[in-house]
Design a protein around this nucleic acid. Structure first.
Length: 622
DNA sequence: TTTCCTTTGAAGTTC
DNA sequence: GAACTTCAAAGGAAA
């Protein structure tokens, strides 16, 4: 759990979710005190706006100032912050931390993920849609926004989005703040991922522009605002379709979303199938309900699982085959046997996706911004930047996303009580979507013929124990003699006999011992050029001055990442690292060759990229 | 057309 | 229980 140290550390993680974040709590209290009635939403908003302005004015560019008071100052904090500073100096703003940290913001659900039909919005859109209004034009928009906020209390998230989508067209991105409505905890996000043409639409705008809203969002017009609102029958929840048996007792984790009149939070649906075609969005809700009520689940066409407004759950993915089967269902001519078969088929094809974790939510939100800033398109490169930014986030900012992720999980759990990530494992094993990592590694190790056996067994500091070929970087004779399995090496103390292949990690000092670097550590960087990427990199030189990208590429490791201290205390590498945990060095190099160009911003930001440390340390090995 | 890349976190699996 | 693996998003690139 890289983000949170259990013992009062500075990170956030799963445990973090149990922590009550005082700042937000206080904010929440303030809000709740004031928010006895509808007036308060507007009050809250204006206070947030004021606060945002105050913050904006008072907060300097210094990250140290922005951040909360120093918690237990850890190595990671120091290194991270110093790197942030350095990166900021060099990246021309790319690496800026969000300008409005700790801001209250209002999180409203994205209309897609449970909330919007994927057909009308891009499938990329999901989860939470930010509301924004102009900071620089508060007076002008005050009335409208107040009204919009009142509208936002409508049970339908679409109602919320509608007004905000059209209320401030053309607002400059810089003039917008994005407000999330996360339960009662308001937090403000800096403006980002706003399409230039549709500044109030987040994530994916290609199918959803203010000037051309999707038909299903146009059918209702708010009499007060004159703003189109999506149809939303009061008796039907616009959110996730529920799996059978999970209805009626669900406390909505996003409590503010719960319809006020005691209706079930979620519609009773008989399945979880997403209609593969956008036309499904036009399916009448009552028709869907009717079908659901009149026919057994397998007889209902796929759109039955959509929300009555045509809202599918983004976590549900099915194949087109289902569409065909739906047609055959409609024909009603199939026998019970074939029905059972189809049901089985459906079960196989249904793919309920995992709920997004905090970082994924963050990525979704920030991706567009990074894309805009960096003009990068490769997701891999973007994700690297996002990963670094994620680390650069303050605790409160990360807490936001952990909280959202927790709610996502809750919601997901409630919607699909029987679902487990295991299902997707099994599905993939059946569908062989991906080659399992273990298989890959096995294959790769076979391909490489394991010339590094001695290295793996003894580590770099036990060079004298290596066989000659290994010392010459040739094929390990020991391994060959061992008939494919590395024979136990001769050892005087036997301590290394059973060392796992990752034994070199023993050479690597623990993060806590970083200050006192063992002598053997001097040889570590050499391993960067030779050893597979399963070795954390903690080299003083590299910490002092980030390595060239090639080294950086090889520097990180899955182990380092899995070990919170290792990864999170990586200091310079943390910002320059490009995890190679999922591929050996060769593939990393190739991928680096591919993405290095697009990483120009992110990696070249690192100061002082002179490669000198390598030459210093390679000497000892050779 | 499919898989890879790349990130972090959650959860499942393996030992 | 630690270590490892897979999957979630994204979209260009490579196979």
């Amino acid at each position: 759990m890289p983000q949170l140290n259990g013992g009062g550390g500075d990170d956030l993680g799963a445990n973090d979710e149990m922590i009550s974040f005082k700042d937000e709590g206080e904010q929440e209290e303030k809000i709740s005190e004031n928010s006895s009635a509808e007036r308060d939403l507007a009050d809250v908003k204006s206070s947030l706006v004021n606060e945002s302005e105050t913050n904006q004015n008072s907060s300097s560019d210094s990250e140290a100032e922005r951040r909360p008071p120093p918690r237990s100052e850890t190595f990671r904090d120091k290194t991270r912050e110093s790197l942030e500073e350095a990166a900021k100096r060099q990246d021309g703003g790319l690496f800026k931390s969000p300008p409005y940290p700790g801001y209250p913001f209002i999180m409203i659900p994205d209309l897609t993920s449970p909330y919007l039909p994927n057909g009308s919005l891009s499938p990329t859109a999901r989860t939470y849609l930010q509301m924004k209004w102009p900071l620089l034009d508060v007076q002008q928009g005050a009335l409208q926004s107040r009204q919009a906020l009142k509208d936002a209390r409508s049970p339908s998230p679409a109602h919320i989005v509608g007004p905000f989508c059209w209320e401030f067209p053309g607002q400059s991105d810089l003039s917008l703040h994005q407000f999330h409505l996360s339960n009662k905890v308001p937090v403000v996000q800096h403006p980002h991922h706003v399409h230039p043409l549709t500044p109030l639409i987040t994530y994916s705008n290609e199918h959803f522009t203010p000037g051309n809203p999707p038909p299903h969002l146009q059918t209702d017009v708010d009499p007060k605002t004159g703003i189109p609102r999506p149809p939303h029958p009061p008796d039907i929840s616009p959110y996730y379709p529920l799996s059978p048996g999970a209805v009626g007792q669900i406390p909505h984790p996003l409590g503010w979303l719960v319809p006020q009149q005691g209706q079930p939070v979620y519609p009773i649906t008989t399945g979880g199938f997403r209609h593969p075609y956008p036309t499904a969005l036009t399916v009448n809700a009552s028709m869907s309900s009717l079908l659901s009520s009149r026919f057994p689940p397998h007889m209902v066409p796929p759109h039955h699982s959509l929300h009555a407004t045509g809202i599918p759950h983004p976590a549900i993915v099915t194949s087109n085959v289902k569409q065909e089967s739906s047609h055959s269902d409609i024909s009603l001519n199939s026998s019970k046997q074939s029905d059972a078969k189809k049901e089985e088929e459906k079960k196989k094809q249904v793919h309920i996706k995992k709920p997004l974790n905090a970082f994924m939510l963050y990525m979704k939100e920030m991706r567009a911004k990074v894309v805009a800033e960096c003009t990068l398109k490769e997701s891999a490169a973007i994700n690297q930047i996002l990963g670094r930014r994620w680390h650069a986030l303050s605790r409160e900012e990360q807490a936001k996303y952990y909280e959202l992720a927790r709610k996502e999980r809750q919601l997901h759990m409630q919607l699909y009580p029987g679902w487990s990530a295991r299902d997707n494992y099994a599905a993939n094993q059946q569908g062989k979507r991906k080659k399992r990592k273990r298989e890959k590694q096995q294959a790769e190790s076979n391909d490489a013929n394991t010339p590094k056996k001695c290295r793996a067994l003894f580590g770099l500091d036990q060079l004298s124990l290596w066989c000659k070929p290994c010392r010459r970087k040739k094929k390990c004779i020991r391994y060959i003699q061992g008939e494919g399995s590395c024979a136990s090496p001769p050892s005087t103390d036997g301590s290394l006999l059973d060392s796992p292949p990752s034994s070199p990690s023993s050479v690597v000092p623990s993060p806590s011992s970083k200050e006192s670097k063992p002598q053997t550590e001097q040889m570590q960087p050499l391993s960067l050029t030779m050893k597979p990427a399963h070795q954390p990199l903690h080299h003083p030189h590299l910490l002092a001055g980030p390595p060239p990208p090639s080294l950086v590429q090889l520097g990180n490791s899955a182990a380092a990442r899995k070990t919170p201290g290792a990864s999170s205390h990586n200091g310079a590498l943390e910002h320059g690292d490009v995890s190679s945990s999922r591929q050996p060095g060769s593939s990393v190099a190739s991928s680096m060759a591919r993405s290095s160009a697009s990483l120009c911003h992110s990696l070249s930001l690192l100061p002082n990229t002179s490669p000198q440390p390598l030459s210093l340390v390679t000497k000892s090995i050779e």
